[in-house]
Amino acid sequence: MSGGGGDGGRRAMIPVALVGIGKIARDQHVPAIAADPDFELVAAVSRRGTVEGVAQFTDIDGFLADGPEAAVSLCVPPSVRTEMALKALAAGRDVMLEKPTAATLGEVEAMREAARATGATLFATWHSREAPGVAAARDWLGRRRITSASIVWKEDVRRWHPGQAWIWEPAGFGVFDPGINALSILTAILPGAFRVEAATLVFPANRQTPVAARASLRGTGGYPVSVDLDWLQRGPQTWDISVETDGGRLVLSEGGARLTIDGAEQLREAEREYPRLYRRFADLIHARESDVDVSPLRIVADAFLIGRREYGEPFVD
């Protein structure tokens, strides 16, 4: 629906509507769209939030019926995202999905089929894959034999999701909401599939999703991967992925912004994850292609399927 060529080899501007005007939309999506020469924000869809200077709608139905013809970027929680995506895709709109892609793998398949049926572009984003050190880490690891890997991803939910009740409800993912960022990097820098051998999920006594998780994975070739996720860390936050190889130890820290090999810093840059996501979305729209990778979501689903449940203290926001 969107895209197309332009005079003199220039690409046509893509109108886009932002659905769900919350913290991530304001902090990341709005400025990324404003800075991208391929996109023009033309509408905002939210029950409460607004964006100055664009058409406003309170629901996806009203936007699709009466709003401008535009691609759709969905920033709503996964529990309601799929239904909105299916409506937009049925209308022939190109769709970009925040992470995690959906609440279930079945929902992803439904969206894929809807995109195929109308020829729309569907882009399931994993913003942490666009961290500065990820591509360099993938290239370095691709020339070496992996012997083990570990993820330590610990942050403060009260700092990053203050008062957000949906994260504690079914389909809210709990600690896997940030933890899936680490898994998206793992599956980007290391080839092959990962299977979950064991997992322990720790639930607050008064919540439906876990506040901490530990898991043991096995990568292609048989090497082990340990995963340690915690949502109650105060002070400095920890976002580290370490990989042991036959040629040394690689560490991606600060969520992928810093890369070290055997302790020597190779790269450290400010993140530009969302501008890179919108650059990719534009490329997909103009090529009339989709990009939907469920490998991080599959690991989370498997951890929930086979994981042991433990219950801890009630969570107080």
Rank of each mutant, 00 (worst) to 15 (best):
I146H: 04
G219W: 05
A12L: 06
P31M: 09
A264D: 13
R26A: 08
V54S: 02
E271Y: 02
H127A: 13
F194L: 01
W140T: 06
T220K: 04
D61K: 12
K99H: 13
D59A: 04
A71H: 01
F123P: 02
A44N: 04
V19W: 05
D317L: 13
T245N: 03
D61P: 02
T220C: 00
M84G: 05
V294R: 08
R308D: 14
R159C: 07
I180F: 05
G255P: 04
A90C: 07
R138M: 03
Q237K: 10
F203V: 05
I180A: 10
S295R: 15
I180K: 07
G53A: 09
W153K: 05
A264T: 11
E98V: 07
G179V: 10
A199M: 10
E107V: 13
A34V: 02
G67I: 05
G219Q: 06
K87C: 00
A114I: 06
L97D: 04
V95D: 03
A282L: 07
R158E: 10
G221C: 11
W168Q: 13
A149M: 04
P132R: 03
D94A: 02
A171I: 05
A171H: 15
A198T: 08
P162N: 11
G163M: 12
V225H: 03
V227E: 04
R258T: 15
V19S: 06
E113D: 14
F281C: 02
A137R: 09
S184E: 10
F123V: 01
